[in-house]
Write a protein that binds this DNA or RNA. Sequence first.
DNA 1: GACTCCGTCAATCAAGCGTTTTAATCTCAC
DNA 2: GTGAGATTAAAACGCTTGATTGACGGAGTC
Lengths: 216, 216
Amino acid sequence: MERVDTRDTKSRLMEAAGRVFSEKGFKTATVRDICRLAGANVAAVHYHFGDKAGLYKALLDEAFELGLKRYPPAMGLADDAPAEKRLFAFVHSFLLRMLGDGRDAWCGKLMAMELNEPTPALDHLVERYITPMSRRLRRIAADLLADGTKPDDDRAFLCAMSIAGQCQHIFRNRAVIDKLSPDFKTDVEDVESLARHIAEFSLCALRGMSHAKRGY
Amino acid sequence: MERVDTRDTKSRLMEAAGRVFSEKGFKTATVRDICRLAGANVAAVHYHFGDKAGLYKALLDEAFELGLKRYPPAMGLADDAPAEKRLFAFVHSFLLRMLGDGRDAWCGKLMAMELNEPTPALDHLVERYITPMSRRLRRIAADLLADGTKPDDDRAFLCAMSIAGQCQHIFRNRAVIDKLSPDFKTDVEDVESLARHIAEFSLCALRGMSHAKRGY
DNA sequence: GACTCCGTCAATCAAGCGTTTTAATCTCAC
DNA sequence: GTGAGATTAAAACGCTTGATTGACGGAGTC
């Protein structure tokens, strides 16, 4: 029995919440800011979502859906595609999610904020979203090590962390990077070259470690 | 004209502030929490530091001193030491600063919090602390690329980011890593093995990229 | 047209925040 | 001891926050 008007303010509220929460985090963001941005009354969030936490939870759920739909764990590549291609696709989509403009960047920024300042919703996030991503990345790393390492090995886990860390770094340290290198841009076209660097860096590392390991 | 008692509550306040600020960030932390932890009255922060921001600034300054003294940019190695050793030393000290227990972890966690939620103090942080670190790391990367790359080149900059990203990842995503791999520990002895991994991963990457570049 | 339900609004509440004021307490030279 | 300055303690101020209230209006039903 949803009315058209209902969905209007409700979705406007969600969009505004996405922008504000992903910029300021749960605690720092205020419902007044969100409602002002949405052009709604402060009471609207209570009416539609119960309270601030309810709005946040609803937003996070929507971010799940969008994130999984837009960047599914397989990321458009077959499981038997060359590991090099899977690595680049993983890195590139990761960066786009984090650095993309507009509403496309919602989910990524929101999740990064959730990591900075964990709320009880973190469990859900890890289970539904991060675990499959981690599994896939460990699989890619294990394939590229090419020395019989299994995705569950500690080596694969460590290498997956090395790759994920590179991907997150640019996003998490934007403020510092801007000061260190003011002409370092992160537009959409630059994201691809950044992804190429990270993929190449990681590829060389994995191949090198594979060779080194055999020599031990 | 400092009294003994003065220094007592003042230093107790600093210690408590270090713990609270480094855990919750500037905005989320409350002076009441800090004062309760320090066993001091709320008015004490006004008396000794002017206001909350003054306390934070004083704390950050102290963290500078401690961080620079304990882990100076050169980190105990000569500038002409082998680049491989310099790389490991850089990574290892970085991790110790971030993951160290007790009051030793102050500065690292505080700076990470400052990055998550920048305050006007960030400029000082970048200028005094991060810039020399970045320069040193770029120098290491350029040396290891061994193909004539200069520390100021974009290639060295990107590789330095890749290394720094790996170092920060374990610290910044502790909550998630604990859930993904509950038996992944970060005790002091484990930090060294972690540092070995990151150093080896990066070393292989740099050497591999150097060879690849020549082939272009 | 009267009634009901749904959505919105301005106004308000209680709690927590940083900060300030005021008074009490302590220390130490004299 | 005493007085002056330094330090602490208690209370309250003003402000912002999330949450709530009760009234208002419009759409649908009979």
